[in-house]
Design a binder for these strands. Structure first.
Length: 376
DNA sequence: AGACCTTTATTACTTTCCCG
DNA sequence: CGGGAAAGTAATAAAGGTCT
């Protein structure tokens, strides 16, 4: 059951909490947007939570706490609760009165499944973007996509042959010596085909480029609009060569279409990894102009690679603009990884990591939106 | 009113990972 | 190795509802 109105008795102390947050504090504008979005999500929460039973911790508060965690790079959910206990600013943002006890950190784990089930992260992102003021910031015809690697919460030592996870691979000579034993991978062939991480089976071994080391990771993808470089969609997949293109198409296909209006032609910018004939065809099929960077790598036969993008596309000034703007998507990845603490996830499993990725992307937007609104 | 059921938070404990 | 930290899990307590 959703414990909604348990703070009513503590109005005074909430006010004194409120009074200590400066009127021009950046979090105030952010909270206004967050609260409006949470209001929209309210029926969803109603559906997710039981009517009876012990009152739940309001999911609105859980969500606001998780946003604060991203804003202030709080390392873990336990640390978050410790901060929330003593930090008035955090208390105010989350909506806890001064003397209200903080909840146990494990409630995040408990509620995670429920919030994932309701796809709350994606709906929250959508709810923020659909606000009338926010909409004016968004371009509805020019977009960019890109993907990045998110390190999994799994070590290489957990990467074991699928058929016998307890076996130390082909390394028969040295028996396991206690936990966290040394493992020598030299000469041992490892691939996603035959091996999987025992810690997080969804994590895949992937190498970004030649000469770089393979990591156990996921792949995070963003769809960005080009006017203010705000994130309009996020998706997390298993790492793989095709994942980036597939995720791009998925995000395009689920783009909200304007009520009644027929779908207009849009442009999509992307780096040279997207310069693949079949992908370009997929875009054209969807009435999407491919503003994709040209992959002109010189191959072994000393000939430049054949690109799927020609002058018909590149001659337009819009192509150059897209190429310039698309790089701003890195700002989003940068924030999500450094401030949002997602360079290496602490969650395990595709669903959990994906949920965190989308929520952190939303947090990234929330930091920027008030500043952008103030400029106009 | 009180036995009993459902749901969720909390507690206590386990597993896993990381790093010096 | 060993200790610290965090997530996960199972058992239990708490809160509210329903049925008789």
């Amino acid at each position: 059951m959703r414990g909604e109105d348990r703070e009513s008795g503590a109005l005074f102390s909430y006010v004194s909490c409120e009074a200590r947050v400066p009127g021009d504090h950046p979090l105030r504008a952010i909270r206004a947007i967050v609260d409006e979005a949470l209001e929209v999500l309210s029926p969803e929460f109603e559906r997710l939570y039981s009517k009876i039973g012990r009152p739940s911790i309001p999911p609105e508060k859980l969500l606001r706490a998780l946003l604060v965690q991203a804003f202030y790079s709080v390392r873990s959910e336990r640390q978050l609760m410790e901060q929330l206990d003593y930090n008035l600013l955090f208390r105010w943002f989350v909506g806890l009165s001064m003397d209200a006890p903080v909840w146990d950190a494990t409630v995040f784990s408990k509620n995670r499944d429920r919030l994932i089930e309701g796809a709350i992260a994606a709906k929250f992102l959508a709810a923020v973007l659909s606000q009338t003021r926010v909409k004016t910031l968004l371009s509805d015809e020019h977009f960019s996509v890109d993907g990045t690697l998110i390190d999994a919460w799994a070590s290489m030592k957990s990467f074991r042959p699928k058929d016998c996870p307890d076996d130390e691979g082909s390394d028969d000579t040295s028996p396991p010596t206690g936990r966290n034993a040394e493992r020598d991978f030299r000469g041992e062939k490892r691939s996603n085909e035959t091996h999987a991480s025992t810690t997080d089976p969804d994590a895949k071994l992937y190498r970004k480029g030649n000469g770089q080391s393979s990591r156990l990771c996921f792949m995070g993808h963003l769809l960005m609009e080009n006017r203010n470089a705000l994130i309009v969609d996020a998706e997390l997949t298993r790492a793989g060569g095709m994942a980036e293109r597939q995720a791009a198409l998925d995000m395009l296909d689920r783009r909200p279409s304007g009520a009644g209006a027929r779908r207009r032609r849009i442009t999509l910018a992307g780096d040279k990894a997207f310069d693949v004939r079949s992908f370009i065809e997929d875009l054209r099929e969807r009435a999407v102009t491919p503003h994709i960077a040209i992959d002109g790598n010189v191959r072994v036969n000393a000939r430049p690679r054949r690109t799927a993008i020609d002058k018909r596309t590149t001659r337009h000034p819009g192509y150059a603009v897209s190429q310039r703007v698309r790089k701003r998507i890195e700002e989003g990845f940068g924030w999500i990884k450094t401030t949002g603490n997602l360079a290496k996830t602490r969650h395990r499993g595709l669903e959990r990591v994906g949920w965190a990725f989308t929520l952190t992307a939303t947090a990234c937007n929330l930091v920027r939106i008030p500043k952008l609104l103030a400029q106009t």
